[in-house]
Computed example of a mutant assay.
Amino acid sequence: MAEFVDANGLVYHALLERISDGSLAPGTKLREGALALEFGTSRTPVREALRTLAAEGLVEIAQNRGATVRAWTAEQIYESYGLRAVLQAHAGRLAAANSNPEDVEKLQAVQAQMEQLLARRPATFLDDLARLNAEFHATVVGMAKSTLLESMINTLTSVSMVGRTFRGFETEDLERSMMHHRDIIRGIAAGDAELVAAVMTSHILAARPAALAMLQASAESPKRSAAAH
Rank of each mutant, 00 (worst) to 15 (best):
D173W: 05
D173I: 04
L174Y: 06
E175H: 13
R176V: 10
S177C: 08
S177D: 10
M178Y: 01
M178K: 01
M179W: 13
H180V: 08
H181K: 08
R182G: 13
R182Q: 13
R182E: 11
D183G: 01
D183C: 03
I184N: 04
I185G: 01
I185W: 03
I185T: 04
R186E: 14
R186G: 14
R186A: 13
R186S: 12
R186I: 05
G187K: 02
G187R: 03
I188P: 05
I188D: 00
I188G: 04
I188R: 00
A189G: 04
A189Q: 07
A190K: 13
A190L: 05
A190S: 14
G191S: 07
D192T: 02
D192P: 06
A193I: 09
E194Q: 14
E194F: 08
L195C: 04
L195D: 06
A197E: 04
V199N: 02
V199W: 01
M200N: 12
M200Q: 08
T201H: 15
T201M: 10
S202F: 03
S202A: 10
H203Q: 04
H203W: 07
I204N: 04
I204E: 00
L205Q: 09
A206I: 05
A206G: 03
A207N: 00
A207W: 01
R208T: 11
R208A: 15
P209L: 06
P209F: 12
P209H: 01
A210I: 05
A213I: 04
M214Y: 06
M214G: 15
L215R: 14
Q216I: 09
A217N: 07
A217L: 07
A219G: 07
E220T: 08
S221V: 03
S221G: 01
S221L: 14
S221Q: 15
S221I: 00
S221Y: 14
P222G: 05
P222L: 10
P222R: 05
P222S: 03
P222D: 08
K223N: 11
K223I: 15
K223H: 14
K223E: 15
K223W: 11
S225C: 03
S225Y: 08
